[in-house]
Amino acid sequence: MSPSEIGGIIAMQGFAGLSLFSVLLLMALGLAIIFGQMGVINMAHGEFMTIGAYTIYVFTTTAATYFPAFAPYSFLVAILGAFCIAFAAGYLAEYLLIRHLYRRPLDTLLATWGLSLGMQQIFRSTFGAKEVSPVIPEWLLGSVKPTEAIDIPINGLFVMGLTVLVTATVFLMLFKSRWGLRVRATVANRMMSNAAGINTKKVDRLTFAIGCGIAGVAGAAFTTIGSTGPTSGSLYIVDAFLTVTFGGAASLFGTIASAFGIAQTQSISEFFMTGSMAKVLTLLVVVTILMMRPQGLFASKVRR
């Protein structure tokens, strides 16, 4: 094996790890807001991602049949659409279900599991049990080849770019906007925020809906990697929760760090053993560390 080939393998391996990192981070970001900031266990998070994925499917196939000229750009518009529809669904779910359960976290868990089952059946009744794939525009297909040994798929790069964009937006919104200020105030001290004139109920609803919207964007991005079925969202839910918990619930930096750590562990161990054993090993490491250090990597210093 020549040095350039080894370099290529290392580069490809590094890219696989980064690609998994962006996938994990993207799906954990919405949860980092809902679970990390609000403390709501949303077991239907994966289904909000599926909403985003199906939105892409509907948008791009409609565009491809009725407005062929518009088709190359429809994907970008569809991502916005995915955010809006998942946002609306989240808003509705908060209003009908979640807001009654804020004081009962374990019951929220069960109720949102029920919600996820209901949503899965709605997907199945609407789109069928078979997995669907959206019309991916030309510019997302193919790969970049900087050298002979390295072959980087464009859709992976696209997901990475989108992850950076969404993460930056979440940071800006959480730390620079009025909404972010209200969310942080509510998390730090609900009573005091109420007294200071923040409508915490409104903040809750908006926060939950934004988290769901981000889940929708994540689901939209994943359509470039794999196909979408009624139950594909449920595959992500444990990974997403572990990522957020492992990072330290209220810390956004923690979520990024833990997504990076989990992704690298997984992709490096995948090089040495089968995929399922790599998954077992990664999860075992995460669970063991969580048992040792239940507050996660970055514990928040807020006094409660």
Binding site: L106, V238, T245, S276, L283, V287, P294
Partner: peptide
């Protein structure tokens, strides 16, 4: 003993269920 409770306990037990089923299938 480390006072992990509530939802954390639920999530970790769920992760253990995932680990065992992946292990058995693998």
């Amino acid at each position: 003993k480390r006072r992990v409770g509530g939802v954390y306990f639920a999530i970790i037990t769920q992760a253990v269920a995932l680990i065992l089923s992946v292990l058995i299938i693998g």
